[in-house]
Each structure stands twice: as C-alpha cells, then as structure tokens.
Design a protein around this nucleic acid. Sequence first.
RNA 1: GGGCCCGUAGCUCAGUGGGAGAGUGCCUCCCUUGCAAGGAGGAUGCCCUGGGUUCGAAUCCCAGCGGGUCCA
Length: 933
Amino acid sequence: MSTLEAEYRLDYFEEEGFHRRECSSCGVHFWTRDPDRTTCGEPPCADYSFIGDPGFDEAYTLEEMREAFLSFFEDHDHERIDPYPVAANRWRDDVLLTQASIYDFQPLVTSGKTPPPANPLAVSQPCIRMQDIDNVGKTGRHTMAFEMMAHHAFNVREDADEEYAYEGEVYWKDETVRYCDEFFESMGATLEEITYIEDPWVGGGNAGPAIEVIYKGAELATLVFMCMEQDPDGDYELKDGNTYSYMDTYIVDTGYGLERWTWMSQGTATVYEAIYPDAIEFLKEHAGIDYSEEEQAIVNRAAKLAGRLDIDDVDDMEAARGDIAAKLDVDVDELRDLLEPLEDIYAIADHSRTLAYMFGDGIVPSNVGTGYLARMVLRRTKRLVDTVGVDAPLDELVDMQAERLGYENRDTIRDIVRTEERKYRKTLDRGARKVESIADEYAGTGEAIPTETLIEMYDSHGIQPDMVADIAAERGATVDVPDDFYGLVADRHEEVTDEETGERDDRLADLPETEKLYYDDQDRLEFEAVVLDVFEVEADDGETTDDDVYDVVLDQTMFYPEGGGQPADHGSLTAGETTVEVTDVQEADGVVLHRTDGDPGTGEFVRGQIDGERRRRLMRHHTATHLIGHAAREVLGDHVRQAGAQKGLDSSRLDVRHYERISREEVTAIERVANDLVMENLPVDQEWPHRHEAEAEHGFDLYQGGIPPGTNVRLIHVGDADVQACAGTHVGRTGDIGAVKVLKTEPVQDGVERLVFAAGTAALEATQRTEDALYDAADVLDVDPLDVPDTAERFFQEWKERGKEIDRLTDELAAARASGADDAEEIELDGVTVVVQRLDADSEELRATANAMVEEGTVAVLGSGHDGSAQFVVGVPDDVDVNAGEIVSRLAQQVGGGGGGPPDFAQGGGPDVDALDDALEAAGETVRSLRRA
RNA sequence: GGGCCCGUAGCUCAGUGGGAGAGUGCCUCCCUUGCAAGGAGGAUGCCCUGGGUUCGAAUCCCAGCGGGUCCA
C-alpha cells in the first residue's frame, strides 16, 4: 500500500522555492514560500486576518470578481462556458442539486463517453448545499447558495486502450497550481502568506490528490486531481478505507468560492455583507435593526473570531459563543441579543438567493425531490422572516435576488413564492387548531403532551415541536421535547430496501449493435435482414413454458424498441415459408431483441413487416406529446418541464411540473394551441447535430425526457415552434396527427400534473366515447344532451326533496301506528304497556315507529321480515327499568344473529326470517323475565 | 419513490359497529339599540366514490378519487 505523498512533489513547487512543512497545531502537511511558517493557516489553527484588512488590492463586487476570474482564465487559453442549472437531477439521477462545478460533467464527460463543452474550460457554477443550512448566518462564512468558480481540464492517458470522447493531456498538476498562484498574484495577494495543504480527496467512487489553498485564514480554493477509481484490487488505500487504482481519464477539478474571494477583497465582518450588501441593508431597515457604533464594533470583533465556528449542533454554538464573549469581555446574553437578529437576516438573504436559483431554474415546490427541498427552504425562510420581523413580503425578497441573478421568469417566481406561502399559511392554521385542541385536552391534567403526539404532529402535519410548545404554553399545557426528537422521527421512516439484480446473457455482449433503420425513413414498414442469433426465452420461474417464446437478434431492423416512453413496434418476420409474430421489442446495449412466437432460424434471411396501424398511432401520439408539451409551456409558463411521459395507442400522457392544478380554461387553451400547430401542418424534421452546438443553440430545455449519451444528439424540430432531443418515431408533418384532444388532467404528486390526451383516430374515438356517455345519460333522462347538466341538477334536487318527504311521512306513519296499533299484542306489566308488533318495513320505519311509541310511554318491541332478514327494534321509555339491549340480544339470538345498543333503544336482527314470529311470540315472556331479574 | 394523517352542515371540527352532532355562519322572532352583544325557534347532510365483512357501516377491511405532511 502506498500513500499519495509523492503526488504532491511538484516541479512547480520546486522551481518556486516552496517548502513542505507539517502544521505544528494539527499535523497536516502543507507547502509554503515562507520558510519560517509553522502552522497551516486554516482555522482553527489560525484566525481570519483579513477582516477590516482586505487581502487583495481592490474591493470587488460579486459580479466583478466573477468577471475577473473568468476573464483571467480566458486570457490563459480557457473557454468560458455558461453555468448549468442548480437542479442537477435534470441531467443525472443520482443527485438532486448541483453542489460543485464538476457535477456539470458527471457522469458522461468524466467517464469519457461524452466530450466536454470545451477543454480546458472555465465556469462560475451556481451551487446549493443543503447540508450547510444550519451554519448559514451563524458562522459568517457559510452560504447555502454559492457560485463555484472553476477551471477544468479533461485528460486521457496516452497508453489508454479504450476509445474516449477526448484524448491526450491538456494540463495537469503543475499548471493547475501555477494558474492558482498567478490568479492570486493578479489580485494583488501576498504570495508568501498562501499555504497549499495536502488533502487527498475521495468521493463518489473516485479519488485523487487534492490541495486546499489557504490565504489569511480563509480557504479560497480547492484543487482536486481526480485520477483514481475505487478498485478492490487497487494499490492505494485512502482515507475512506477503500482501495483505489488509476483510471484512463484524469481530470483537473478546481473550485474557487466566488463569495469567499469577494469577501477577501472587501474584508467585511461577514461574507454576507460583501456579497449582497443591498439585500442586507434592505433587510436591516425593514426589520428595524440599527446598531450604535459601539455595538457594531462588538459585532465586527466577534465576526473575526467566528471563523472557528463550525456548528454541528446547538451545543457547539453556545460553547463557541461563550468563548467569543469571554475574549471580547462582553456578556454572553448581550452578545447573543446583538448577533441573533443579524444571523437571521444573513440567513434570510442567503435563503432568498437559494430560492431565486431554484425557482429561476424551474424547480417547482413539491412533496418530492428538489421540489421538497425548495419547500423546506421556503418555509424556513418564512419562519426566519417572521421571527426577526421583516415587514416586506417574501416574494419581494426572493425577487430582489432573482433580479440580481438576471432571471427572466421573475413573475412566475413571485407567483410560485406567493402560492407556496399561502399553502404554508394554511398548513400552519390547520396545525395550530389541531395543537390547540390537543393542548386543551392536556391543559388540566398536569400531564405533558406525549412525545408520540409530537412526532405525529410533525410527521403527519408538519408542525415543529417548538410551535407545539408555544401554543401549549398559551393554553397551560406542558411539552417535553426529547433531545433526539428528529432521530425519533427518522425511526418512523426506517425503510426496507429491496433490491433486485438482473442478469444479462453473456452471449448478448458478443453480438454487434443492431443497425437501426427506423430513423432513415420513418414511414417505411418493410425491410430485410439476417438473423444473427436466437435466444429461447424461459418463463420467470426458470421453467420452459408450453408456448414457444424467442428473442431474435437481426443485423438491422425497422422495429422500434420500447424506449423514451414509446412502446415497441409489433409485426412479423418471414423466412421462406415460416412467419413469426413479433409481440415485443427491447434494446439491450445497442442490441435489439425481437420477441417472437417462433424460431426463424439463425443465419436465415428474413423479411420484416411492421404493424402499420400501430406504428402510425404511436407516431401520432409521440409527435402530439411534443405539441402538448409546447402548448402547456405556452399556456402555463416557461417553468413547465416534462416530468415523465408514456405514449400509447389509445391515449398518451405527459407529466409536467407545475405548481397548481390545471384549470378547465387552461386545458382548452392548451388544446387550442396544440391543434393550431396541427392545422399549420408544420414539417417535423430530425437532425443529428453535435451536442454542444445543440446545447449552445437551444439550451438544456432540449432534454425534456432525460439526457442521452454520445457526441451527437438527435433533435426533433416541429417547424420553428418546438425542438427536443428525442429518440422516438414521428410523423412527417403535424397535419398527419389529425387532431389532439386532452382527455383529463390529474395530479400525480404535488408540483406535477398529468395531461392525458389522444391523437388522431384515438382523439376521435375518445371524443365519441364521452359523447356516447352523454347521449346515453340524455336518453335516460329523456332530454336533449345539452340539457343534461340542468336536468341532472333538477333531478338531484328533487331526489333530495323526496328523501326529506319520505322521512316526514315515515314519522307521521309511525305516530299513527303508535296511537292505534291494530294487530299489536299489548302486555301490561306493572302498569307499563309493552307493545309487541310485527310490521314488515325497513329499519328506518321501525325506528321511527318505536320512537313514536316510546313518546307515548310504552315499551316497543318491533320485528320485521323485510329484505330477507329478520330485524328488531326495541325502545324503552326513560322511566321504565328494562334494558332494551338485552331484549334485542335475546330476540336476535333466536333468528341466528345479534344486536345491541344503548339501554333505552336497541336494534338487532338475524338471517332466519322463519323464526321471526316465534321469537316475537315469546317476546312478552322475555321482557317479563328480564324485568324480574 | 416510500411512510404517515385526513375527507361528516357554507366554514372549523367532534363522533370508533346500533337512533347524524357541536361551535360558527345563515333565516325568523324577541329583548335591547354600545361594537365579533343577549334570548327563543328554524333550515341546512348521497357522513368523498365503489366493493367487501356484518342482522346492521359515517364508524371495520380493500380499491379508487381528493387534500395534507414527513423522509430519501
């Protein structure tokens, strides 16, 4: 095993006269120009030395610093590229948010499958790190949203066996450190004060040597040399305990924190004041914070010491604050009162910026994915705004940041913020009412509200325990919040992960990729091919089935395999006299598998025939999906983005991100836009441009259905209206679709709406189906179809009226029966009259009659053989000492059932109707015996 | 994607297997004409939908629809 120590012995360090030292305080190794230096310079081994004493020649704003960095690297042969969205899940499914510039290029570029947009390149990439959320505002240096300025170079070893999308070495470690040094120099930094700390980097299965660059107590850059991958047989054991070996590709991955650099140039008390001074001013003003000079001086001195703060939990913070207060010789409470409102304001500014990035890049609040993270940030921000008492609406705060960041969809952003705030308000109101009633319940008891209830309030209703505590205190109830509260919540979510592994046949790997003919001419339905191999398919349980099932591999095919939400083509393969049916088509590693009901024979020539009607329906639906997506975007807003899609024969569906339900008016508008495009009969063209040209011209919105690998991407243009990267089959002109009809919308999850629609024949059929239903309904009501709604309304009203009428009549009938029972058996029992009567009516009527009899002071024992079962109702006046429940229970036993109820009114019954009369006959005796007992 | 909670009067909700309730709002009347006033009476319900269990379901079970919330 070996360490990476040799990796840091750079020629550049040698040439420049650097010294390698071990930090006397923390023991790390670092490189410096200063021969007398003993510590690494990074907190906690040193304090900030730039607060009030900027480390660069000039003060830069955020924008100026970004420009300085990018133009420096442009001047040094790097190409400047546009930043990627903060929603990294738009091009990779392993993460939600962009947390570093290298995320832009994972996994396709770093693995060498896809060329980088430029090489070398420089970018200033907006990033969001949720894990820093608790530190924001408090440490003076953490922000959740930040820009990582970076220069990257993508290299491939000369002796690499495999082919990669880029080749050779652009530059590696020496040049990287030199660039860093030179950039520092261009800023006017004192080079002797810079330390380069050796800090091997490991993450996400990759690793490599890395250098932390420290200047005046602040970490300003990290230079990562990604060149290794996890490998059980690797020779290098790194700090995560795994072994690694070198890869064919090796990549310069640098990160220069834009905010830190800006801060360094200004030397303000905190980073926040350097990067958005206007927002901080605005917030202070609207929160009524106005400190005297002495107070401000304390704040500034505390800030200088705060570099040591790196809060993992509240205890850390309290301890650190105590230290700082002691050093400044002020009271801890006084210091806290000064700092806390400021900390909240810093956090609000940062969170607003985070939200601006998120919503600006099209994230929609939701209960899943990035949308959930956005919701959490928004709610946290809202709470902070309320706590510190900022008298400006949240959407304005976010808008300020969105404007500064140059987003164009600011109206939508404000709309989203307001909508989301309204939802949160409702949740809080709902929760508050719930907590109030719970608090009232426990207020008198002296018991604390149990932890279990707290957990449920949070987990199911989103109410923070401290909010429960507040409300409970108002109402005189107590709450005991356990320290590990969120741990207990997590326990509730312990998940059972079931994983499945699929095995691929090795034979597949040896087959060449199938040539795909369906892109050449999407209207052709016949082709010829050679059978390369035939696999006999076993049933899922491993047994061979009675039916013959085969997967046929051809050298080329016209059959479209299932993919991109488009189902497979069906059809047939004919070899001589034999014809086999193709019922499914799948693609595996470029090899197309035709699922058939027969073996055409390996090596045979076959003629393939596609089921044309099926193909045409799918093509219409696929092109229609693009039209619907385009129309939805036009009608609902630019934030609308595809969240999933599935094409079908009779209908298709498109899931789009949107923050509220789609109204009926919006649906008709979408239909109109889509059908206008159909009527314009626009050409639908495909092209295969280089991905960088495609991205440069159309941006990331190309990739509605995910990002495809490869150097070239297939684009589908619908006239000049819409363009998307897409692998599916499409009609030649929009007119071929015929018509598009939205069948319904439904919410898939919060923030995602599903549009179900039909195209062409299917649209007609769907319309006819709903029309048929309407006509049938009209037929039943015997009215004109257009009158159905009014008539249904009238009928429903009348039906309800009649229900009430029946109730009234039942009562009347019951009263009449009670006063003049004709065939009733009356028993006198100690001055109380007991009426036993069979009347075959439903239980409603039985109850009413019993009630009426009770009103008259008699005990009512009623039986019924209505509806194929025996039923009893027994009513007893208040002053009579007989238990109705017991009577019913005994009667019901005799008809094979059961029953019960309160002592004065009980019901029951059983299936044996034949025994009803006998039971009633014996009822008198039963009552008598119960009364005696 | 997964877990959990909730669908009952216009609104807010109680009701945990047997006669659909409260508060508020609404209508009528009375008393007062002091500020979300008091008193009396009244009207309001496919108890989300569909299946199942049961003699009997607002209530239990399953599915669906709708809303909410937490987690990755």
